[in-house]
Design a protein around this nucleic acid. Structure first.
Lengths: 337, 337
DNA sequence: TGCCTTGATGTAAGCGCTTACAAATGACAA
DNA sequence: TTGTCATTTGTAAGCGCTTACATCAAGGCA
């Protein structure tokens, strides 16, 4: 690999001039610039970006930590972040936490050790209190898809309360009154918020949330399958189900199938997320869409703005709205279709 | 951020000693080590890994370029690679190519500019010839899930010929004789290989591949839907279909549904990949499994071995075998179940 | 002509580390 | 006592860049 020094020798100038010719072209004479260009070409010189970063104290790198990369949920957000950052010449270093609190802590720290200018964290395992501590300790961090009131301006998040309300409103509008729900784990802020919005919206329609029809899941299909089985075997009847993730909806659908129940004829189901899976399920799943790619992109931009202490922070959308995508898994009781 | 110089002052030793105390503990006296440790603690010192890398000429970073991160296919491989690398203290810099040849070229180059010790490439867009050129130009590269005969020892790949054969064998064993197939794009090596294995295996059973029952898709569901519609509307009958990706199988299933055809009663379908989607489809999809996570992990390890010029290269599994996962989308014509 | 600008380039000091090599210390054998 | 050797530490030269500051030549102006 050619170095700047070799280019300088070949072009007959100092390394400072080479550096300037490349980075601040307006400061150097046209003829000199030409000589430098030629030397660069003939040596195939490419600046060592790590050395540049060390000297200029800017790595142009953002870190991201998520549970794992294999699921569409995380993958889509990361994709959004990476594309947004790549456009402005930034790179993404990705680390997975292995779904453990200790993994989140160490990944967070180690990304800074790698001189990431900022890091994007999707925390699942850290309690609110510890998270707050980290946000304070690492001011160059932003939270993705989680809302921490104390650090409002460094969070990109979905309005989960409203998301939950949307699900309830949709079901109620379709004439459902007896509604069950399988939530995410209550240790997750999102799960609590979605349930809260769901409950509030039901209340507005004069329907109290029935604890017997409320089950705590873990966003995964297997557990949702079991919960749904229990609900179906329970004494209470219901015509509709709200699952806080599409994957759980898939598990619930499977349970219905095993019990010989048809969807949406016998039971209506609405999911949450709108990952690819949703439109491949049978019937196609009506769901509450999270704009994951947009959320990821916003997190990337926010991280960049925070790192650069840019005043644009205010201009970056930090709060996103969910929307219901109507497909074929909810029956309209009013019209029967 | 504290620097090594500050630690040195606080501990009353030279920076060299601090460096040694931290990286080669056996070289320094126990008492000195204790003083250093204490200074490190009290200053909260953490080594700047970028500076370490510059000085020691090793970044402990591997790059990876894929089409996009949002799909389970790429996500799972990346997950495998990241976990394998994290265990040996390496980090992953991820860049997406935006599904374009130019994106692949520039990502590849730019990851080296960031001093990645090696880069893992999942090339979709580059033709074999250009790819060979890149492998020659960048010896610290490995190919993930693609097989380039000239650089056999720097490729981690699935035996796609065998994978295609497996699909054919399964269908034939179930008594199918009239078999259609929707392939990936023929510009993809994988698609050609899978078709080749498929054809060979059929030939062994005395069944010629019928061009009228062979359609070229693009691994996506939409196009598969159209291709399947055309096949169904065509003059030739068939009892089974092999799709070269699960996503295409989902599209084909949708087409059957629209035509009022039941699966597997009227038509049997076997997919390829075994991503999460497969077990959520209805009926659950019988498919040829690619061990994506293992392939990703092997690519990570191979990249590391290549970067370190380690002789272990030979010990890393580079060729993976597919396997058929039997679920519910293929009817056994022999028994009728 | 002399002085001040202005623009282009070079010099050299870092950025935060590692690592040859040199130096110092003490133990030990002759 | 002296020389040898092993052990521990320090000195300083990088790694490949950027950038503040110094330098220098040329042009403008009184």
């Amino acid at each position: 690999m050619a170095t700047i020094a070799q280019v300088a020798v070949k072009a007959g100038v100092s390394t400072a001039t080479v550096s300037r010719a490349l980075n601040k072209p307006e400061m150097v004479d046209a003829k000199t610039k030409a000589k430098v260009q030629e030397a660069v070409q003939s040596l195939g010189y490419r600046p060592n970006q790590v050395a540049q970063g060390l000297a200029s104290r800017s790595s142009r790198t953002i870190g991201v930590v998520v549970n794992q990369f294999g699921s569409a949920y995380y993958g889509t957000m990361i994709d959004g972040a990476e594309r947004a950052l790549r456009k402005i010449g930034y790179k993404l270093i990705a680390e997975s936490s292995g779904e453990a609190a200790e993994g989140e802590r160490s990944a967070w720290q180690s990304l800074f050790d790698r001189q990431c200018e900022a890091v994007i964290v999707h925390s699942d395992a850290l309690a609110e209190e510890e998270l707050t501590g980290f946000m304070e300790k690492h001011p160059m961090s932003v939270l993705m898809n989680r809302h921490l009131p104390d650090y409002e301006d460094r969070c990109v998040y979905l309005d989960n309360i409203r998301g939950g309300a949307l699900a309830a409103a949709h079901l109620v509008a379709k004439g459902h009154r007896k509604i069950a729900t399988i939530t995410g784990p209550f240790s997750y802020h999102e799960a609590r918020d979605r349930l809260k919005g769901f409950e509030q919206q039901l209340a507005e329609a004069g329907i109290p949330l029935d604890p017997d029809l409320t089950a705590e899941g873990n966003f995964k299909d297997d557990m949702a399958f079991e919960r749904m089985m229990a609900l179906l075997n329970g004494p209470k009847e219901f015509t509709a189900l709200f699952c806080q993730s599409d994957e759980m909806a898939a598990g619930a659908i499977e349970a219905c199938r095993q019990k010989g129940l048809r969807i949406p004829d016998d039971i209506s189901i609405i999911g949450f997320d709108d990952v690819d899976l949703a439109r491949h399920l049978s019937p196609k799943l009506t769901t509450v869409r999270q704009p994951l790619r947009e959320i990821g992109a916003a997190a990337g931009l926010l991280a960049h703005a925070v790192a650069r202490k840019s005043p644009d922070i205010e201009g970056i959308c930090r709060s996103f709205e969910a929307e219901v995508i109507e497909r074929a898994s909810v029956l309209d009781l009013n019209t029967g279709s």
